[in-house]
């Protein structure tokens, strides 16, 4: 202890803080502040990755299988639902099970992310009140955490595809741009729902029930073709197009231009909305904790 002098302590890198009144900021200033927040959040990516990884570790601390419980529960769900719906819909299991496995895993990723987006800021309440941190970092953490969960579900898809000897071929790489849209939408969802739910604490249950309904009206367990001529309303469901641009390439098909346009259009609108809200309320978030 006695050897400790100010010189041996690690020095903090120099920094600079200039915070104006939130209510007096112009629209443009708010945009810049929000963009700075995102940039600073990205710069702390190492912290974001570590936080996300610790979240997963923490959730399964003390369990033998750890996050592989996710894999098992998804596997069981695919098996059970596959046999049930395959019989109900009179489907050929050989094509239906791979479709269902992929659909369910992808939908779990969407549903999980949307649900957790609601607690983006509220779950970090104590941190937000204790130190100044870019708010985007919390969004980053939630998105990465859900990516890790998704990665643990991938073996289920691989296994089902292997059993039925399905190989999507080079078309699978077309899922990457779709997935990139998902990532951006994921950040937007965290900023939008996270802010909204911080201010109005009743939102998370509402989001939960909306997602429940979305699960049934989106072609997840059923195929879009099963709707026949009643499929005119599908384009109004943003989840449909978003799911298709990732799922179809992985099944070896190429999504048509319309699907792509819809997915992009919905995403743009969603991101614009999220950005408008986040840049508006960023300075107030700490007060809502």
């Amino acid at each position: 202890m006695d050897s400790l002098t100010p010189e041996t302590l690690p020095r903090l890198p120099a920094s600079h803080l200039d915070i104006g009144a939130d209510s007096e900021a112009s629209h443009r200033e708010r945009q810049i502040l929000a963009a700075t927040d995102v940039a600073r959040g990205l710069k702390l990516w190492k912290l974001g990755l570590t936080l996300a990884w610790l979240d997963i570790k923490l959730k399964y601390r003390g369990s033998v299988l750890g996050p592989f419980w996710l894999t098992i529960s998804t596997g069981v769900m695919v098996g059970a639902m596959g046999t049930l719906y395959g019989t109900l819909f009179h489907m050929d299991l050989k094509t239906y099970l791979p479709f269902l496995a992929l659909s369910l895993v992808l939908w779990n990723a969407i549903g999980g992310l949307v649900t957790e987006a609601c607690i983006t800021f509220t779950q970090s309440e104590t941190t937000i009140r204790a130190i100044r941190m870019p708010f985007f970092l919390h969004a980053f953490r939630v998105v990465i955490r859900n990516l890790i969960s998704l990665a643990h579900n991938l073996p289920v898809i691989v296994l089902v595809f292997a059993i039925f000897a399905i190989w999507p071929g080079v078309h699978a790489s077309l899922a990457l741009p779709g997935f990139a849209i998902w990532l951006v939408d994921g950040f937007a969802a965290c900023l939008l729902l996270g802010s909204f739910c911080a201010r109005f604490r009743d939102i998370p249950p509402i989001v939960g029930s909306v997602m429940q309904i979305a699960f049934f009206v989106t072609p997840v367990v059923w195929r879009p073709e099963q709707l026949g001529r009643h499929n005119w309303w599908l384009p109004f469901n943003p989840f449909d197009a978003l799911l298709e641009v990732v799922r179809e390439p992985l099944l070896g098909n190429i999504p048509d231009v319309n699907t792509w346009a819809l997915a992009l259009g919905y995403s743009l609108a969603f991101c614009a909305g999220a950005w408008a809200l986040f840049s508006r309320v960023r300075g107030r978030l700490a007060y809502w904790m």
Partner: peptide, 23 residues
């Protein structure tokens, strides 16, 4: 001053690295 609560009115400037031991 630590930048946690952004002021309702006025402006706060801090030049230099900051550590806040608040709780």
């Amino acid at each position: 001053i630590a930048g946690i609560y952004e002021p309702t009115v006025g402006r706060i400037r801090v030049e230099g690295s900051l550590n806040a031991l608040l709780d």
